[in-house]
C-alpha cells in the first residue's frame, strides 16, 4: 500500500480516537469498500477494541425494530453512555442498489453528540447482516462507543448471523404471525437471549406471549443448566411501554454473561468464526488473482455442460491457486 494511503489511514485513526465523527464515518466506508484498506485499519485499531457491549436487534420486517431501537437509545443515553448503531437493510439482488430507511425512526438522535448511527446495505450477504458489519463494529468500538446496537435486516427463519456477532440477541416479534408451531421451529427462535413482543397493545399480544412461554417451558432443563432463561417482554415501542424493562433485561443478561464467564466463550466463538470467514475470503480473492477470468468461466461452462463435475473443478482451481493438492 502507498505510503500516502497509510498516512491518510493513520490520520483518520488518530482523529477518530479524538472523537471525530467524520473520520470515523470515513473509516467505516473504507472497511466496507476496500478490502486492502480494511485489513490495514483493523490491524491498527484492534488494540482499542473489545470495550463495547454489542446488542443485536432482530426480527421480521415491520416488527418495529427501528422504532424499538429509537426508544432504547433514549433509555441508554439517560446513563450517558456513548451509543453506536449499525442499521442494516437489503441490497437489491438485481441492481445492486439499496434503500436504507432505518434511520427515519432514529433521526432525532442524529444531532446527539453521544450517538453515532450508520446505515449499511447487505451487499450480497444473506445472513441478515452486511459483509462488513463486524469490521464496522470494531471501528465504532475503537471510536469509544459503550454500547453498539446492530439492527439486522427484517429476517425470516434462518438469517441468524447476528448470533455470531452480538453479545445479547433481542428477538422482536409481533402478534399474529402464525400459530404455536412457528415457535417450536428451528432457527431464528433458538437464538434469542431476550424475546420482545412488540405492538403489545394488539388484541392477540397476550396469546403470542403465552405461546412463547409454552415454547420455553418445553426446555426447562436447558435453561436451568445454562443459568439463563430468555425473558419475554411485551412492549409498545411507539409509546415507550416496556422499554425501560427491556434495557434492564439487556443489562441483566450482560451481568449473567460476565459472571458466568460465558462472555469469554462467546467472544472465542466469534473470533473463530471471524478467522474462518477471513480465510475463505482470502482464498476466494486468490483465485481471482491467480487465474484468468476466462479460465474460470471455461471451467464453469464445462460443469454446466456436464463435462466436469463441480468437485473436480474446485480441486483444480485450488491446486492452481494454492499449489497444493486438496
Amino acid at each position: 500500500m502507498y505510503p500516502v494511503v497509510m498516512k491518510m489511514i493513520d490520520d483518520l485513526i488518530e482523529r477518530m480516537r479524538r472523537g471525530d465523527k467524520r473520520a470515523t464515518a470515513r473509516l467505516i466506508t473504507f472497511v466496507e469498500n476496500d478490502e486492502e484498506k480494511a485489513r490495514e485499519i483493523i490491524k491498527k485499531i484492534y488494540g482499542y477494541t473489545g470495550k463495547a457491549y454489542i446488542v443485536g436487534i432482530t426480527g421480521p420486517p415491520g416488527a418495529g425494530k427501528s422504532t424499538l431501537l429509537d426508544k432504547l437509545i433514549k433509555e441508554v443515553r439517560k446513563e450517558e453512555k456513548i451509543v453506536g448503531v449499525i442499521a442494516i437493510d437489503p441490497t437489491s439482488p438485481f441492481t445492486g442498489g439499496a434503500l436504507l430507511g432505518d434511520r427515519i425512526r432514529m433521526q432525532k438522535h442524529s444531532t446527539d453528540p453521544g450517538v453515532f448511527i450508520r446505515s449499511m446495505a447487505t451487499r450480497g450477504s444473506l445472513g441478515g447482516l452486511a459483509k462488513a458489519t463486524n469490521d464496522a463494529i470494531k471501528v465504532l468500538d475503537a471510536y469509544g462507543c459503550d454500547v453498539i446496537f446492530v439492527e439486522t435486516v427484517g429476517v425470516g427463519q434462518i438469517e441468524v448471523d447476528i448470533v455470531k456477532t452480538a453479545d445479547t440477541v433481542v428477538l422482536t416479534t409481533i402478534p399474529g404471525l402464525g400459530d404455536d408451531i412457528q415457535t417450536i421451529k428451528a432457527g431464528l427462535m433458538e437464538i434469542a437471549d431476550i424475546f420482545v413482543v412488540n405492538k403489545g397493545d394488539k388484541e392477540e399480544a397476550d396469546r403470542t406471549v403465552f405461546e412463547l412461554k409454552l415454547m420455553l417451558d418445553l426446555e426447562k432443563e436447558k435453561w436451568k443448566e445454562r443459568g439463563w432463561r430468555p425473558p419475554i417482554i411485551k412492549t409498545v415501542a411507539l409509546t415507550n411501554r416496556g422499554i425501560p424493562e427491556l434495557w434492564k433485561a439487556i443489562k441483566r443478561h450482560k451481568t449473567f454473561l460476565e459472571e458466568s464467564g460465558r462472555i469469554k466463550d462467546k467472544r472465542r466463538f466469534r473470533a473463530e468464526e471471524e478467522v474462518k470467514t477471513i480465510i475463505s475470503d482470502i482464498i476466494t480473492g486468490k483465485v481471482g488473482k491467480h487465474m484468468k477470468r476466462e479460465e474460470i468461466y471455461s471451467l464453469i461452462g464445462k460443469i454446466a455442460e456436464r463435462e466436469l463435475d463441480p468437485y473436480s473443478a474446485a480441486e483444480l482451481i485450488m491446486e492452481k491457486t494454492l499449489g497444493v493438492k486438496v
Binding site: 441492481t95 442498489g97 434503500l99 430507511g101 434511520r103 433521526q107 444531532t111
Partner: peptide, 18 residues
C-alpha cells in the same frame, strides 16, 4: 435505488442540523 445506488432516506421534516 433502481439505478444501483445505495440510498439513505431520512423522512420528512428534517432540520438542517439533522
Amino acid at each position: 435505488r433502481d439505478a444501483g445506488f445505495e440510498v439513505i432516506y431520512t423522512g420528512i421534516r428534517q432540520t438542517p442540523e439533522q
